[in-house]
């Protein structure tokens, strides 16, 4: 049976591209915030672009947090957060003030130390992942993925970081904590290797 992937609709992110890529990978993908559809999904994806604060406000406004916590934290449904969708997992965000996050993964979101580098960090950049991590199976080390962000996830627990990237500083390119995955880059926009990563996710 095809995996049934719910892309959480909280009015953030390039959901068309994500749905398109997941369907290309063989999933049944739907963009939804209806509780019963979220509960029926085999996999959940939290997309996102934009501001941390708006993301949290929208999750609250649509009453999504209790459902997501039940499905992901209690029932251990496979979950993938992309870009802001990954950053929202942190305990707090620090863009224009301090904002509380979902707190599923310990750590906080801070601005990249640009030094003389331009921000946002936008374009293709290579990542290094820990050996034997499922999300990157079949993907070579130093594969390029598409990034577009100015903030990054500083994880408290080192083992939560499964891939890193360097732009002025090392930062988390991907995280994993049990059934919870997150990528700072956009797999749906990273062509061959991005699609492979999504395939890996929907087959777990």
């Amino acid at each position: 049976m095809k995996p049934r992937v719910a892309i959480v609709d909280y009015e953030m992110g390039n959901v068309f591209s994500l749905k398109n890529a997941l369907e290309y990978c063989g999933a049944l993908a739907l963009v939804t915030r209806k509780p019963d559809e979220l509960r029926r999904a085999t996999h959940l994806v939290l997309p996102g672009d934009g501001a941390f604060r708006t993301g949290m406000e929208n999750l609250k406004r649509f009453g999504l947090i209790p459902i997501l916590e039940e499905e992901v934290l209690k029932k251990k449904r496979p979950f993938l957060g992309i870009c802001i969708g990954m950053q929202l997992l942190a305990q707090e965000g620090t863009e224009d003030g301090i904002w509380e996050g979902l707190g599923w993964v310990k750590g906080k979101i801070v601005k990249l130390k640009g030094h003389s580098l331009r921000l946002p960090h936008v374009g293709w950049d290579d990542i290094t992942y820990k050996e034997n991590c499922y999300l990157f199976s079949g993907i070579p080390q130093q594969a390029d993925f598409y990034f577009i962000h100015s903030f990054c996830f500083v994880c408290k627990e080192r083992q939560d970081v499964i891939a890193s990237c360097r732009y002025g500083q090392n930062f988390a390119a991907a995280i994993e904590k049990q059934n919870i995955f997150g990528t700072q880059f956009h797999p749906e926009k990273s062509q061959t290797y991005g699609l492979k990563l999504l395939k890996n996710f929907i087959s777990c």
């Binding site: 068309f16 398109n20 577009i148 926009k189």
Partner: peptide
């Protein structure tokens, strides 16, 4: 735009 985006697995 949708028809073009459907063919596009890179940023648009």
């Amino acid at each position: 735009i949708k028809e073009m985006a459907r063919e596009c697995f890179m940023p648009l």
